[in-house]
Design a protein around this nucleic acid. Structure first.
Length: 452
RNA sequence: CGGGGCGUAGCGCAGUCUGGUAGCGCGUCUGCCUUGGGCGCAGAAGGUCGUCGGUUCGAAUCCGGCCGCCCCGACCA
């Protein structure tokens, strides 16, 4: 084959095929990886296992943060911030904790141009129980200081052997709640309360039905008495751990001497919890709702609710359309939606339709000269491509109605999918046997066994 | 840590087997054209071919070392 022929071959096949994603059925993993890039959610970086979160992805995280932060505050928690570097020695104090995390630590061995002496090194936090307990030990003196309800928004680092965008990255963003209580019962109540907050968030905002339950002994958090999680089922029929809530008992309190004087005047160790969700939720969101055309995001978390695509040729047609588009955009924004107008004349409408579907914009408004004649616009929903011709006066109301419908339908659909692939088992062995068929969301004896 | 793949323009790749002027598509920039499902034409900019060394008159290409990333597995709090 000549070079010329090869180059021609290079051109052919690039055109349409390369614009499409791999299908979920043919290559779920490839579909996911490609989608993350093409929807401009994240990029690989030159740092092993670490990703760059792009604006379209970060906007989803911001919306998650806002909703969760409100829910934490409604349940009495306050935000604080602790250092990213933790004295290595702190981790050593809790035996199970250090055993669990040691292999995944990144350690700071040099600072200020010289090596740090043995015993004075720092680790980059993989989680913050230890350093937070140093502060808690100072803050808690009396039963009157309890409960202490703190949350931190932060990044953490765990040197994972193998990483996947959003689902498992070496550095990730998360929130970690850390609380201290007077009694074991109070701590258990908090553990379950926050698990329920996660469940509510997953269902109401992410439109992602979840199962919650207690993790097995081998899967619990290192240093915890017990760990609970919410588990969501992805389109490939695998469960994904989407959030965890730990009852830490007095394990950390004893190692860091986090004590209080009780109502009876005695020194007692506090009972603690910790709980977290991370940017993994973005991965879960993608795998729950998106399709072969690209990203689908529930309106309550979407970076962009509506794109207005201007159609028409020449200034004569476009000027009027643009005026109307800006007026509509202003109204939509006033009603709380995020809106962009695409007035790029160098791209055809077809290109734009495909592009915004790929990026996960919930609603597309097409507006052209023909519409203006009829005093209407075209609204198309991302998830089901349901197309509506709407009178301009009622466009805003209709857009809101369609977004509400989308939020509800996504939940219903995901729930139906989950239920269609859920089964009851009577023993752990039976569950394992069924799991080998590739149907792997099981709930047995109160605990969820998962693969992710 | 095992197995595989890759490193050439911003992105995706060809060229490497068989050494001889650095290529293609997309994207970007200029101009024209076009606009209801991934338009068209013309022109332009853009690369010490991952890195170090070796062989050679000559290396993206052959040989050796190193670095890095991706995928599969093991692991996964």
């Amino acid at each position: 084959m000549s070079d010329q022929q090869k180059n021609q071959q290079n051109q052919g096949g690039k055109k349409k095929n390369d614009l499409a994603l791999p299908t979920r059925e043919a290559d779920f993993s490839g579909w996911y990886n490609d989608l993350v890039q093409r929807a401009k959610l994240a990029d690989n970086s030159d740092v092993k296992g670490c990703m760059v979160i792009r604006p379209n992805g970060y906007a989803i995280w911001e919306h998650m943060q806002k909703a969760l932060d409100g829910m934490f505050k409604d349940t009495g928690h306050q935000n604080a911030y602790f250092p990213m570097l933790i004295p290595e020695e702190y981790l050593e104090r809790e035996k199970d904790h250090v055993a669990g995390f040691k292999p995944q630590l990144a350690v700071v061995t040099h600072a200020g141009g010289s090596p740090l002496p043995e015993g004075h090194r720092y680790v980059i936090r993989p989680t913050s129980e230890t350093i937070i307990n140093r502060s808690f030990a100072k803050w808690v003196q009396s039963y009157r200081d309890l409960p202490l309800l703190i949350n931190q928004w932060a990044n953490v680092m765990r040197w994972e052997m193998r990483t996947r965008m959003f689902l498992r990255t070496s550095e990730f963003l998360w929130q970690e709640g850390h609380t201290c209580h007077e009694t074991q019962g109070d701590a258990q109540e908090e553990t379950l309360k926050m698990l329920d907050v996660y469940k509510t968030f997953a269902e109401d905002y992410m439109a992602m039905p979840v199962m919650s339950g207690q993790k097995t002994e081998s899967e619990k958090f290192p240093g915890a008495d017990s760990t609970y999680s919410i588990e969501a089922m992805m389109q490939d029929k695998k469960a994904l751990q989407a959030g965890t809530s730990h009852n830490l008992g007095q394990n950390f309190a004893k190692m860091f001497e986090t004590q209080y004087q009780s109502r009876e005047g005695k020194k007692e160790f506090v009972w603690q919890t910790s709980w977290g969700v991370s940017t993994r939720l973005i991965g879960a969101l993608i795998m729950t709702h998106s399709d072969d055309n690209g990203l689908v995001v529930p309106p309550r978390l979407a970076p962009t609710h509506c794109v207005i695509v201007i159609i028409g040729k020449g200034p004569d047609e476009r000027t009027k359309v643009k005026e109307k588009a800006h007026a509509l955009s202003a109204e939509l924004k006033k009603s709380g939606l995020s809106v962009i107008i695409d007035d790029d004349e160098s791209k055809g409408p077809g290109f734009k339709f495909a592009e915004y579907e790929l990026r996960g914009v919930c609603l597309r408004m097409e507006l052209g000269p023909k519409d203006l004649e009829k005093n209407q616009c075209v609204l198309v929903r991302r998830d089901n491509r349901q197309k509506e011709f709407v009178q301009l006066e009622s466009a805003v109301a209709k857009a809101r109605e369609m977004l509400d419908g989308m939020q509800k339908d996504l939940f219903t659909k995901a729930k139906a999918f989950r239920e269609a692939h859920t089964f009851e088992v009577n023993s752990y062995d039976e569950m394992k046997a069924k799991a080998e068929d590739g149907f792997l969301l099981a709930h047995w004896d109160g605990s969820a066994e998962t693969e992710a």
